[in-house]
Computed example of a mutant assay.
Amino acid sequence: MARTKEFDPDAVLRRAMELFWQKGYEATSMADLVEHLGIGRASIYATFGGKRELYLKAYDRYLESRPDFIELLSQPGPVLPAVRTLVEGYAEEAAHDELRRGCFVVNTAVELAPHDKTLARRVEANWDFIETALTSALARARAQGELAADRDPRALARFLLTLMQGIRVIGKSSDDPARLRDAVEQALSVLS
């Protein structure tokens, strides 16, 4: 007869995500996971697979837990204030991350994507998603006359995506929120 799980897999996955987010993949040992998750190694393997499979599930959980900015960007009315809110939100979140975790996706891109094709594809898919959402919003802004007709929504979206990911990197290593605010203000001025 199979034993029932004596833990909540969803709660354990959330804790695994937090640990990987804080320490990274390589710096997190199986012993760290056992201690932090409060379950045995055999339970981790039986429920999630190995460390890599757990990391992939934690990555997916992170994406699921992020706010849905598509709703913000697709609201009726002016678009550029929503874009500004999104970019400023990235800077605010980065500036107030007391644990200096950065972004799980950016951390994955830097640590693992260069040598892990599966994670590289997942990172690219996430960035494609953000780029597409921004391109759509900026095309709508151009159609509504908020953005000059000669502005390329896709190029601007790529610029903002790069800025937003850079914000995550700077926020992880700098304790100067003015650095982020100034960069955001300068970047958003290209939309005017």
Results as ranks from 00 to 15, higher is better:
T135K: 09
I130N: 01
L73Q: 03
L80N: 04
S189E: 10
A91E: 10
F20K: 03
T135E: 14
A109Q: 08
A183W: 14
W127F: 10
D32F: 06
H36N: 10
D97P: 08
L188H: 07
M1F: 09
N126I: 01
A155M: 07
P81T: 08
I170G: 00
T118P: 00
G77N: 06
A58N: 06
S136T: 15
V79D: 05
L33Y: 12
L134I: 06
A178E: 13
V83L: 05
L63V: 15
T85N: 00
V34Y: 02
Q22F: 09
Q22G: 01
E92L: 09
T85D: 04
R154P: 00
K5C: 00
D176P: 02
L156M: 13
D10C: 00
V184N: 07
V169S: 01
R61Q: 14
E26F: 13
L160D: 10
N126G: 04
L180P: 09
Y90G: 00
R66D: 00
R122M: 15
A149M: 02
E35P: 00
P9G: 07
Q22L: 15
R122W: 05
V184D: 09
E131N: 10
F48Y: 15
R140L: 04
A143Y: 05
E53N: 09
L63D: 02
E35A: 15
R151D: 09
T162Q: 08
H36D: 02
E131H: 03
H36Q: 14
A141G: 11
N107A: 12
S136E: 14
A133L: 04
T4V: 12
S192V: 04
S65P: 00
R121W: 02
S43K: 12
A82D: 03
E124Q: 12
E88W: 14
K117M: 05
T47N: 13
L188Y: 03
F104M: 12
A113C: 09
V87Y: 01
W127N: 11
A148T: 01
A133T: 02
P81H: 09
E124R: 11
A31T: 15
L99H: 03
S74M: 08
G102S: 05
S74K: 07
F20G: 03
T28I: 01
G77C: 09
A155H: 05
A187Y: 02
P81S: 04
E88K: 12
K57E: 14
L37N: 06
R140W: 03
L161W: 05
G171H: 07
G40L: 06
G50L: 08
K51H: 12
W21R: 11
A141R: 13
N126V: 01
A141C: 12
S189V: 02
P114I: 05
S65V: 00
L191Y: 10
A125K: 10
D10H: 11
L33T: 11
D175Y: 07
F129G: 10
E92T: 08
A109N: 01
N107M: 05
A2R: 15
G89L: 08
L37D: 07
D128V: 02
M30I: 13
R15M: 03
S29K: 04
Q165T: 15
R142S: 04
S136I: 00
E6S: 14
M164I: 02
T47A: 04
E111A: 07
G49C: 11
E98C: 03
Q186P: 02
D32N: 13
